[in-house]
Design a protein around this nucleic acid. Structure first.
Lengths: 251, 251
DNA sequence: ATGTCTTTGTGAACGCGTGCACAAAGATGG
DNA sequence: CCATCTTTGTGCACGCGTTCACAAAGACAT
């Protein structure tokens, strides 16, 4: 691209495509593994294979960060680890609160992957008074009443919601009002937030349903032999006819 | 967002776009809520709002399934619930095994969202002999040695991997060899699988890293000139891509 | 220095997904 | 039966992301 200066004001969002941002953590993980094995350099081909992506895509991704490679050699592993870490903002410490300490919330609190890289569980919050003070993963659970104070005292800007669906929006509103601007939502609900707040959703049952769709398609195809000629209902998966009938027909 | 699957042509001759499939569970959830409130019909506008998507997108999504709406009225809720359920393959029962019963695996076993719609936890599997026989979520944990037999006996085609990263690929290989063709992977590793096997990845730390990127960008931008609330000043308030001092230069 | 070989960085084409805007379809009321 | 109103279904254009293919850049050997 431009061999000279960026042709755009600094106030504009840096031109890194969202899809690229989503892959940077993947590259970082692969690079960290290489770094631990003291591998000095790596080619786009090798790294792409380790990250499970196309090598041209990887090179283009890195080109958005700048020209950190050496032609004929590859990329310097340590240098790239640093650059990606910096780009992702992992050179600083991010305090995180987890709200909703049920089975999932407790698992998240115990999850090593959080602390491993830049993230620190600053507090655990739950609405159940019986939980208050009880330590989970070595951190005492605090009551929802103190949510705003906890956010403020710890300078938290990232919140994790692991509450039941019914409580998620309310918790979300309070987090945002208290200053949280990034939310990772595990509750099976659509959260509405004001502009400027990022929400990422992790929905376990949706992932399973998507798998089920493909699974059914696979089963249907092998029954039909060749796809393409079946306009409707390749549904039987070999488990026998189900005799389902629509509960309601359209008027 | 938590995507991640093996690259494949995917679009069969008569295929529903992948992006649409990913939204169907969202619609289904919204429709189920309406159904429980005995709402007879719903317009694309209302349903789209409930699902958090654009109404034109929703109508186009439904058009891939067929013409189930009535112009001037909207969509019949019950009928649409049935059609989407059928399309996703949720009218049949999907036995699922969870491998790796640590904090996360146990949380998944207890997660109500699984059983709620078509999915049934057929077995819990762990490599730790001390876990064997111990009930989790009312289901006794079985040892990894019996993995193949369990898959076979229960006709399992969907597996959930919640093991440490180091064990994931090996577990994956055994699942696939035993007949599993869809895998939901929680381990922070890239799994390689043969063609015909679908993998979806849920990576908690990647989600957080993506949030951190946006969070950093937001913090960097507001340094450019907005008076008033400055919640917390990031140490690395580096604004430009250039100008920062790298810790390590490429050799 | 020069040539060869490796690997990056990127221009360009392509395909997918999104959203606008509108005509067609059907309900509803007179 | 006709007019009007509501809402669907979709043609179309646009932008993003992916991939190919190759010239440029540098390492390395002679």
């Amino acid at each position: 691209m431009a061999t000279g200066r960026t042709h755009r004001p600094a106030t504009r969002s840096r031109g890194i495509p969202e899809a690229t941002v989503a892959r940077l953590p993947l590259y970082l993980r692969a690079l960290t593994a290489l770094s631990e094995r003291s591998v000095p350099t790596v080619s786009s081909e090798e790294l792409a294979a380790a990250a499970g992506v196309n090598s041209a895509k990887l090179r283009k991704d890195f080109s958005y960060l700048g020209s950190y490679g050496t032609r004929g050699v590859g990329y310097d592993v340590e240098y790239l680890v640093y650059q990606i870490s910096r780009e992702l903002g992992l050179t600083q410490d991010w305090p995180v609160v987890i709200v909703g300490i049920g089975n999932l919330g407790a698992a998240l609190a115990n999850y090593g992957g959080f602390a491993s890289r830049g993230f620190r569980v600053a507090a655990l919050i739950d609405a159940d008074p019986a939980m208050a003070g009880k330590p989970v993963a070595g951190i005492p659970v605090q009551h929802t009443d103190d949510l705003e104070k906890i956010i403020d005292d710890n300078g938290v800007s990232i919140g994790v919601i692991a509450t039941p669906a019914g409580a998620a929006q309310q918790v979300c509103d309070r987090l945002v009002a208290a200053g949280v601007t990034s939310i990772l939502n595990f509750a099976p609900t659509v959260l509405s937030v004001p502009d400027g707040v990022d929400v990422r959703k992790v929905d376990l049952s949706i992932e399973l349903q998507i798998l089920a769709f493909h699974e059914q398609r696979k089963a249907g195809e092998e029954a039909a032999g060749e796809p393409g000629a079946v306009p409707l209902a390749p549904k039987d998966s070999g488990k026998g006819p189900d005799g389902d009938v629509p509960a309601v027909m359209p008027a």
